[in-house]
Simulated assay, not measured.
Amino acid sequence: MKIVFAIIHSDDSVNVTEELTLNHFSVTKLATTGGFMRKGNTTLMIGTEEERVEEAITIIKTECGKRKQVMYNMPYTENAPPGNCTVIPVTIDVGGAVIFVVDVDRYEKV
């Protein structure tokens, strides 16, 4: 038995969980926050047999494609007068997934 932890962009969570459920995977979804951009993520916990791990990972990869997104940063300048700030557009990569596969010593469903 294995548990797959997949940390994905929140925008991808509906498609990933639907596809995993259609393929008979049990999925628990947790709302999490990333450290870098402090944006909402979703962490999925998927318990499965060892022989189905690659199938779950393939579904996650298919549904979580990387893409570009424009963010607007407002730089902090200590002496700038109020309302006199320049907004700087920054292109970042979003999507994709971070996946961990862990052995399960014991599993009970009660």
Rank of each mutant, 00 (worst) to 15 (best):
S26R: 10
I99C: 02
M37N: 06
T62L: 10
Q69H: 13
A31T: 11
V102T: 11
K61R: 11
A31F: 01
T42G: 05
M1I: 10
T43H: 00
D11Y: 06
E78L: 10
N41L: 04
I3F: 10
V4D: 01
Y72P: 00
R67C: 12
D103F: 04
P82H: 03
K39W: 00
P75S: 00
F25P: 09
L44E: 08
P82L: 07
K61P: 01
D11C: 07
G83D: 03
S26L: 07
T48G: 03
V4E: 01
N23R: 12
E78W: 06
P75Q: 03
V16K: 04
P81K: 15
F36A: 09
V87W: 06
G65Y: 01
G95F: 00
L30F: 13
P82G: 02
S10H: 12
N84R: 13
S26Q: 09
I57M: 05
E108Y: 04
V101A: 04
H9D: 13
M74C: 07
I60L: 08
R67H: 15
S26G: 12
A56G: 06
N84C: 13
T42I: 10
D105L: 11
K2F: 03
G40I: 04
L22K: 11
G95P: 03
V98M: 10
N73H: 14
Q69K: 15
G35N: 13
I3A: 14
D103E: 12
V53R: 12
V27C: 03
T62I: 08
P89D: 03
M71Q: 13
V110N: 11
